[in-house]
Amino acid sequence: MAELLRVEGLKSGYGEAVVVQGIDLVLEKGRSLALLGRNGTGKTTLLNTLVGETRRHAGRIVLDGQDISTLPSYKRAAAGIGWVPQERNIFKSLTVHENLTAVARPGPWTVARAYEMFPRLAERQANMGNQLSGGEQQMLAVARALVLNPKLLLLDEPLEGLAPIIVEELLRSIARVVRDEGMSAIIVEQNPRMILPITQFAVVLDRGAVVHRGDSEALMANPQTLDRWLSLAQSPGQASEPRK
C-alpha cells in the first residue's frame, strides 16, 4: 500500500523546550493509527507539530510525497491535513451551516454527507456555534475537518469529557470514517480500549519518544503491555468528567 505520511527524526517543542524526541513514523494511505500514552508524554505536541503549531528542532515531515516540514499551518491544511484539536476551534459566532460551508472543499465529503453523519447538526444547522452543547461542538469540529476532504485526519482526544451517549455516537461515526471508509487518521485517545478496535496500528509514547509500535489488535490482546505503558485507570465504558 502507498505511503501517505513519513516522519523522520522529528524533534519539536515550545520555544527551546524539546518535548518530542526523535520520532520516526510511517502511515500508509487508508490506514489509521492510535497514538497512545499517559498524560504529558508528547501526544498532543506530536499532532501540533504535524500541523505546524510548534517549533521543530530537527527532522522532517513528508505528506503524500511533499515535504511539509517548513510550511505554515494554512499550507499544511491545503496540502491535506485535517485537524480536530482538543479546543475544537469552531467558529462560535457562525451558525452550524456557516461553519461547514466556510471551510468546505470539493471532494466526497460534502456538507450534506456531514449532516447525514451527524443528524444532530442537521437539526441545529441554524444555531450558532456557542448555542451547541459540548458534544455537538465536538461533532461540528469533526464535521468541519471532514468537509475539508483531507488526506490525513488528526483527532486529538475527540471523546474526552463527553457524556457516555455522545461518546457512543461519536465513536460510531469515527469508526465509520476510519475503519469502514478508509480515511487515513491519527487518533489520540486516553482510553485505548475505545480506539484500538477501530484502528490498524498503535504507537505508544513515553517522555516524547516511541516506546511501542505494532498492530492495534495485538496490543489490545496484550493487557500486560497496556498496563505497563498506559497505567489504565478507566474501565472500557467509563467516561471522564464532561467538558464545559
Rank of each mutant, 00 (worst) to 15 (best):
Pro72Gln: 14
Lys92Ile: 07
Leu154Thr: 05
Pro192Phe: 00
Leu170Asn: 05
Val188Glu: 09
Ala126Cys: 03
Leu153Asp: 02
Gln137His: 00
Glu169Trp: 12
Arg88Thr: 13
Tyr115Arg: 03
Ala163Ile: 03
Arg76Ala: 03
Ala185Cys: 12
Trp83Cys: 00
Glu116Leu: 05
Ala102Ile: 06
Asn149Asp: 05
Gly80Phe: 10
Val203Leu: 14
Asp215Ile: 01
Arg88Ala: 10
Asp180Pro: 11
Gly80His: 13
Ser173Ile: 06
Asp156Trp: 00
Arg207Cys: 14
Trp109Gly: 06
Lys151Trp: 00
Arg76Gln: 12
Arg144Cys: 04
Val111Gly: 06
Gly208Arg: 02
Pro197Leu: 05
Ile187Tyr: 00
Leu154Met: 04
Met139Arg: 02
Leu94Val: 10
Ala209Tyr: 07
Ala122Val: 04
Ile198Val: 14
Ala79Ile: 06
Met128Asn: 10
Ala102Met: 15
Leu155Tyr: 03
Ile186Ser: 11
Gln86Lys: 13
Gln200Lys: 12
Asn191Tyr: 01
Arg144His: 06
Phe201Asp: 06
Val188Pro: 04
Asn130Ser: 10
Val211Tyr: 08
Ala104Val: 12
Gly135Asn: 08
Arg172Lys: 15
Gly107Cys: 03
Arg76Gly: 03
His97Ala: 14
Pro158Thr: 05
Glu181Ala: 09
Ile90His: 07
Trp83Lys: 05
Ser73Lys: 13
Leu121Lys: 00
Ile187Trp: 03
Gly135Asp: 07
Val147Ala: 09
Gly214Thr: 06
Asn191Glu: 07
Leu152Val: 11
Leu171Lys: 11
Val142His: 00
Thr199His: 07
Lys75Phe: 08
Gln190Ser: 13
Met128Arg: 15
Ile174Thr: 05
Pro72Ser: 13
Gly161Val: 02
Ala78Val: 14
Leu154Val: 06
Ala202Gly: 08
Asn99Trp: 08
Arg144Met: 02
Gly129Ala: 08
Glu160Ala: 15
Asn130Lys: 09
Leu152Cys: 07
Ala112Thr: 13
Arg176Tyr: 12
Gly82Cys: 11
Pro192Asn: 10
Phe118Ala: 05
Ala114Gly: 11
Gly161Cys: 03
Asn127Ser: 15
Phe91Pro: 09
Ala114Pro: 12
Pro106Ala: 10
Ala126His: 13
Trp83Arg: 12
Glu160Asp: 09
Ala185Val: 13
Lys75Ile: 02
Ala104Trp: 09
Val103Ile: 15
Gly214Ala: 08
Leu121Met: 07
Ile81Ala: 04
Phe118Gln: 05
Phe201Ala: 01
Asp206Lys: 14
Arg105Asp: 08
Glu157Gly: 10
Asp156Glu: 01
His97Lys: 11
Ala79Lys: 10
Ala202Cys: 06
Pro192His: 02
Glu160Thr: 07
Leu94His: 10
Ala79His: 12
Glu123Tyr: 04
Arg144Pro: 00
Leu170Thr: 07
Lys92Gln: 11
Pro158Phe: 09
Tyr115Asn: 11
Thr199Ala: 03
Ile166Gly: 09
Leu154Asn: 01
Arg113Ala: 14
Leu146Tyr: 04
Gly208Ala: 09
Ile81Phe: 11
Ala77Glu: 11
Glu87Lys: 15
Gly161Ala: 04
Gly208Met: 07
Ile187Arg: 06
Leu100Asn: 04
Pro106Leu: 01
Ser93Arg: 15
Ala145Trp: 03
Ala126Val: 06
Val84Glu: 09
Val211Ile: 14
Ser173Phe: 03
Ile81Gln: 00
Leu121Phe: 03
Asp215Ser: 14
